[in-house]
């Protein structure tokens, strides 16, 4: 049991290759990734993102997780202290394992996104008979 004190982890902003048109900020969510015999599980910290705001896609072995959240409602409020910025989340990974694309599952709970990527069954060796002409 790790009973140490949690430390403040500063949010890292995504380094875009180009500038976005909207003045939105994208942060890199902290992740845990682990592998079992059945598949790969990705858990990402995305506080403030609801189920509707999550987008998960796997394309050419690149897994993209994106979370958008509603901007902070500061109408009629005065900021007394600001220690964190709220913004959207974006992170990409290259997945080395062969993944069964149809069985990818993603759930969102308590600000944590869990993506389960089941491994595809290893391709069966097939014998190809050569027809003699």
């Amino acid at each position: 049991m790790s009973e140490h004190e949690l430390q403040v982890q500063e949010k890292k902003e995504v380094q875009h290759s180009g500038e976005t048109t909207k003045p939105e900020k994208y942060f890199v969510p902290a992740v845990d990734i682990y592998e079992t015999d059945e598949g790969v599980t990705v858990i990402a910290e995305m506080p403030g993102v609801t189920g509707e705001g999550v987008e998960v896609s796997l394309e050419d072995d690149v897994l993209t997780i994106q979370g958008t959240r509603a901007p902070e409602d500061t109408e009629g409020k005065r900021v007394l202290l600001q220690e964190y910025e709220s913004g959207n989340y974006l992170r990409r990974f290259t997945v080395a394992e062969t993944i069964d694309q149809d069985k990818i599952k993603a759930t969102m709970a308590d600000g944590l996104l869990t993506v389960i990527l089941p491994k595809a069954a290893p391709a069966k060796p097939r014998k190809i008979e050569v027809q003699m002409g």
């Binding site: 949690l6 430390q7 403040v8 409020k77 202290l81 600001q82 220690e83 709220s86």
Partner: peptide, 16 residues
């Protein structure tokens, strides 16, 4: 300007 939090968790405080 972001105030640097030294103790977890970082907070945002507003008032109306």
């Amino acid at each position: 300007a972001l105030a640097r939090a030294t103790v977890y968790p970082p907070l945002n405080i507003f008032e109306d």
